[in-house]
Design a protein around this nucleic acid. Structure first.
Length: 114
DNA sequence: GTCTTGACTAAGC
DNA sequence: GGCTTAGCCAAGA
């Protein structure tokens, strides 16, 4: 929609700490978009990847990567996540360990950089 | 203006 | 565990 909402989405995604992931719906809520999870997906798609935004930390509900398993993008995203310490179980991310929860975030990992 | 498409989600079978 | 359906909303054609 507007640049502002897009910026809000990017800000939320940037605030996801390394080694953890958030779902599209979660990002949408954090950005004040309510249930516009698809909008988050659209913003990610438009980024292209070289925007300094950790797009790979955004996954679908349930902790599954949004891309088709085996696809180029899927493998890239998974590789990036695993390099940050995110653990997978099959094609799902262990959300209990790596899922991002803002409140729990500060308790376990300390306050985010910004 | 409408119709289609999609990096979504929750619920139901 | 998986697949389908229905709801959702914005961008492009």
């Amino acid at each position: 929609m507007t640049r502002q909402e897009e910026a809000a989405v990017l800000a939320v995604v940037r605030s996801i700490p390394s080694g953890r992931v958030a779902t599209y719906g979660q990002v949408a809520r954090e950005a004040g978009l309510g249930r516009r999870a698809r909008f988050v997906g659209r913003v990610m798609a438009r980024l292209g990847g070289s925007s300094g935004v950790p797009w790979h930390r955004v996954v679908r509900a349930g902790g599954e990567i949004a891309f088709a398993p085996g696809s180029e993008e899927y493998r890239k995203q998974r590789a990036l996540l695993e390099s940050e310490g995110v653990t997978f179980q099959g094609r799902r991310i262990d959300m209990l360990r790596c899922g991002w929860q803002a409140s729990l975030d500060e308790l376990l990992w300390g306050p985010p950089p910004a």
